[in-house]
Design a protein around this nucleic acid. Structure first.
Lengths: 238, 238
DNA sequence: GAGTGGTCTAGACCACAAT
DNA sequence: TTGTGGTCTAGACCACTCC
């Protein structure tokens, strides 16, 4: 090979990838430009076509380039500039902070879906749902009120769980493979009930996460998670 | 090949991937279990080792399996159950809703870093920073107050921009390649200034996003984005 | 029809792990 | 030492695009 071949060198396919990325970053090739063909790269780097193919195939998987059979390989559109906030299971999050998690079950009941709920679950009005209300504590400070409705068809054993030991989130994950999630984050004032459970004043804002999970092609669960604004925030980095 | 070879068939490497995934999903192989070696798969499916290698290499990239040279290929840990919230540039977000975006520049100044800011920017106290205060409107309704501090070393031309035409976010993206982001989402009550700019009452909660961006190995910008809780939420799905 | 990417083969040599 | 994955070759045939 022409490529560097000492023990510390990167594999050839990686060198090709790095080369393409740096040319794009340097502005030599711009969005939509044709980049060299596999054969050209193979000749350039003195490798077989399969090696050039792997490099370009991986860059396509990374969305750096777009490949069109018969036409060529093009520089992809700039990646969407978005911030991704990761929200974790409350018990794991507390454990990660080396704090103690405890939860109190305030309510666990069977209920009939009202019209608005039936719509959310894509079920008929009056269909049976499970309803739980749990308060989560971090070192004995209430940090989350979890108001959750669960589709009986997806998790028929929901009522039999011990939610002081397993969070509903953990149980649902095992009971039904997650297909999709819809979520909303809001800042709202607490209802008197929630304020009491979180032990906060009625004038303290709450950070609320609505989370709707899809499983087995059905709406599995709709949850409303209330957090005290003064003590809780979503945060992270990448 | 032994694998199906009709025109509608999947490529061999894909059939192998599907087979592995379905065996894991069916519970035949559990977390940590050894899956067949490349040679075994090659024999099983009647393909060359390279084809089996591609299948397993891609599954490793997808974090379905973990590969250890010399030891074997193992079923990976279950994927982390986390919700990823995507936060977009306010102007793009409004455009995506087919609404009109407009921004008002309330302040654009040079300033010296106070101690707390210097710490955030990892600069000496008194270093020069740029400071902008912009209100963003969606169909003439104030939807975001953007209070932003910018590192002069990263974006020296910041003061020369027309922020009624380009958002600071857009300018910074082009001026300095993004390396990393740290963020926090909170629910807080507005200061009197912010309440006035957002045209909300002092008792209405705000959804606040703190965002610190890293560029060229420096802290590029620290922004505090205030949104009226009643009119704005972060939402999405996956 | 010429050129492109998509896939595949049957070998090969290497680094590393378990023994 | 044996077996594993990591990489690579020099061919091959195919489907597709563009002229």
């Amino acid at each position: 090979m022409q490529v560097a071949d000492n023990p510390h060198a990167q594999p050839a396919f990686q060198q090709i990838k790095d080369h393409i990325v740096s040319r794009i970053r340097a502005g030599d090739w711009k969005e939509g430009d044709l980049v060299p063909t596999e054969l050209e790269l193979a000749r350039l780097f003195g490798v077989s076509r399969m090696t050039a193919n792997r490099a370009m195939r991986e860059l396509a998987a990374e969305q750096v380039v777009v490949r069109v059979q018969g036409a060529g390989t093009f520089v992809a559109q700039e990646k969407y500039q978005a911030t991704l906030v990761q929200i974790r299971n409350i018990a794991d999050e507390i454990a990660a902070r080396n704090h103690k998690h405890r939860s109190e079950l305030h309510l666990l009941e069977r209920a009939r879906a009202k019209d608005s709920q039936a719509k959310q679950f894509d079920l008929k009005s009056g269909a049976e749902l499970f309803h739980s209300l749990i308060v989560h504590f971090e070192d004995e400070v209430p940090i989350q009120v979890e108001d959750r409705w669960v589709n009986k068809l997806v998790a028929p054993d929901y009522m039999a769980q011990d939610f002081t030991k397993v969070t509903p989130n953990e149980y649902l994950m095992k009971a039904a493979p997650l297909q999709g999630v819809q979520y909303t984050i809001e800042a709202v004032m607490p209802s008197p009930d929630v304020a009491e459970m979180l032990r906060i004043g009625s004038q303290e804002p709450c950070l609320v996460l609505h989370r709707k999970t899809i499983s087995r092609n059905k709406v599995a669960s709709v949850a409303k998670l209330w957090h005290p604004g003064k003590k809780y925030r979503f945060s992270g980095e990448f």
